[in-house]
């Protein structure tokens, strides 16, 4: 080790900017950190893509023939559900990533730095939105290959994509709260997933809710996944329903209003080990 003079020079002074600037800049620094890692561990992204592809193939070819009453081809009906499920399942990487950072002691380091408090969480949720965008593009392609034919305007399709990413972002914050609350990466993994199965399957994602028993339908018709799926479906199939879209947006905003402060609080009170 050679002993260079430590940099007491002026240029190693921190830059002074308003707080909001650093909330964003620090979050972007950390989002970048997460994103550069994705190509370095490609298996993670590959597996999180394979799973929804399997769902597409299974539903399209195994269950598809038996499901009726969708008012369009089953694959056209299915894809909105697949997109929603993909981004919602994909949001669990947020909690897993945070729990991993906690276990590795990285959160301790971040918390000892004079950086914006929310940045670790915002950075992670943002990078997961980017990651989810990629997966949605892959799913779109797979859908086209198995006969998915979106209708209506391209603008509406972008609207659907925007709504899906908002959903991804909102569910990432729920996942972040779980990741900061549990004691291990494994727990973040299972606790993050388990409740999503009933939520996505007891919805209009894969089958029309009319086929469900009344008590289940009462739940399915009102829960956020159904509302997001219906809104996205409308946008993709040229049956736009403004009320449903606003309801879906309201759900996402509501989730953000509740879970951003919750997860920030959990972050501030947690340290590793």
């Amino acid at each position: 080790m050679n002993i260079a003079a430590p940099g007491h020079g002026n240029s190693t002074k921190p830059i002074i900017r308003p707080r909001i600037y650093w909330e964003i800049a620090d979050a972007l620094t950390l989002a970048k950190r997460n994103l550069v890692q994705i190509p370095r561990i490609p298996e993670e992204l590959i597996f999180s893509t394979i799973q929804p592809v399997m769902f597409v193939l299974l539903f399209r070819y195994v269950f598809g023939g038996a499901i009726t009453g969708t008012g369009t081809t089953y694959v056209n009906y299915l894809m909105a559900g697949i997109f929603a499920q993909t981004v919602i399942f994909g949001s669990t990487t947020t909690g897993i990533g945070l729990a991993t950072d906690l276990q590795k002691g990285l959160i301790d380091r971040f918390r000892s730095l004079p950086m914006a408090k929310s940045a670790v969480l915002t950075g992670r949720t943002l990078s997961d939105v980017v990651r989810n965008t990629f997966v949605v593009i892959v799913m779109w392609t797979v859908g086209l290959l198995v006969g998915f034919r979106p209708q209506g305007s391209i603008l509406a399709w972008f609207g659907a994509a925007g709504l899906l990413l908002l959903t991804s972002f909102a569910f990432s914050w729920i996942s972040a709260t779980i990741g900061m609350a549990v004691r291990s990466v494994e727990a973040a993994q299972s606790a993050g997933f388990i409740w999503l199965f009933p939520l996505t399957f007891a919805s209009s994602a894969f089958v029309p809710t009319q086929s469900m028993p009344t008590w289940l339908r009462a739940f399915a018709d009102r829960q956020p996944v159904t509302i997001v799926v219906n809104a996205v479906r409308g946008l993709l199939l040229n049956k736009i329903d403004a009320t449903t879209i606003w309801e879906a947006v309201a759900w996402c905003v509501g989730i953000l209003i509740v879970f951003i402060p919750l997860s920030v609080r959990a972050y501030n009170s947690r340290t590793a080990r």
């Binding site: 921190p14 830059i15 900017r17 620090d26 890692q37 590795k104 380091r109 730095l113």
Partner: peptide
């Protein structure tokens, strides 16, 4: 702070790790 267990990001390079900390100190 250098904690008892090295708090570095395994999937970043050494350079990226130090640079990131610099950015988070607002350099």
């Amino acid at each position: 702070l250098a904690g008892q267990y090295a708090a570095v990001d395994e999937n970043l390079t050494g350079y990226e790790n130090v640079e990131m900390v610099g950015r988070l100190y607002h350099l």
